[in-house]
Computed example of a mutant assay.
Amino acid sequence: MCGRFFLQRDPAGLARYFETVNPTPNHPPSWNVAPTQTSLVVRRHPESGARHLDPLRWGLVPRWAKDTKDAAKLMNARADGLAEKPSFRDAFAKRRCIVPMDGFYEWRKDEAGGRQAYAVGLTSGEPMGVAGLWEGWKSPEGEWLRTFTVITTDANEKQGLVHHRMPVILPPEAFDAWLGAEPAEAHDLLELLVPCPAEDLAIWPVDNRVGRVAENDAGLLRRDPLAQPPPELDDAPPDLARPL
């Protein structure tokens, strides 16, 4: 599951990192992106083949949907059902994308029933290129809404200490294949949707106020001094603000 993530990078830096060519959108940083909010997505232009960085709304609305009320329910798409499920199969075949993240949040339950929030980033400090799908939906009034969903897979052994699911973090060498710049069969694409190596992740406890959508500031990424996590989940936060 991925229900919250953060993206604080300068869009110009993201455009360089993901090699996009369209005019860079003016998009503010967010330390608490929630479903139905807008974030940046990398897509491949069907005619030029170039990568574009565009703002889309989180929570997929399939083309055939009558309205947008179930969008938040489709914030995630399980990797093991993409080719068959009606909500995802057309986008999986034709509209794959990459969702840039600096990291994501997850909550761990303890034996007493409490929950502790954790932030997850790459130890390298680089952005995550998370596998996603996007759709364009036309309202009865004729207005277009473009939305995306985040693909999840089984957690690796480290992330599994927090939650049994995690977003699919693609290595840069897989970006072209996922976006469709290289020919690939469905089974080849599905083979990309695996957990990243556990050693690539830094995980640390953060303030539980991240659970409130209205909370959105850089302090959300600071280690919670009151938390008592297991050693495997008490990494030093990587440098997530260095220029790209």
Rank of each mutant, 00 (worst) to 15 (best):
P229Q: 08
S39M: 08
R108N: 10
T152L: 03
I203T: 05
R242C: 01
D80E: 15
K73D: 14
E106D: 15
H27V: 09
D54W: 06
L244Q: 14
Q159S: 14
G129W: 02
F92C: 05
K85G: 01
R222N: 14
A71M: 07
A112F: 02
T123G: 15
R43C: 12
P229V: 10
W178R: 02
A112V: 00
S48M: 03
W31A: 06
E111Q: 14
Q8N: 15
W144D: 12
L193Y: 04
F5S: 13
D200R: 14
A83C: 02
D200V: 05
L7W: 02
G125N: 06
F148I: 02
Y105W: 12
E111H: 06
P29T: 01
L133R: 03
R165W: 04
N32L: 11
G49W: 01
R16V: 10
A112S: 14
K66A: 15
E47G: 00
P183W: 02
C196E: 14
E157S: 13
V41M: 03
P205G: 07
Q228I: 00
L122R: 09
L240F: 11
V130K: 04
L74Q: 05
K94A: 15
D10A: 09
A91R: 10
P243E: 15
H45W: 00
N22S: 05
L145D: 07
E173I: 04
N208D: 10
E232L: 10
W204T: 09
R63E: 13
G125S: 01
L233V: 11
A72K: 05
L14E: 03
L122C: 05
D10N: 15
L201S: 04
L220Q: 07
P172T: 07
T152N: 05
G125Q: 05
R57H: 10
C2A: 12
L201N: 06
L53I: 09
A12C: 03
E143F: 00
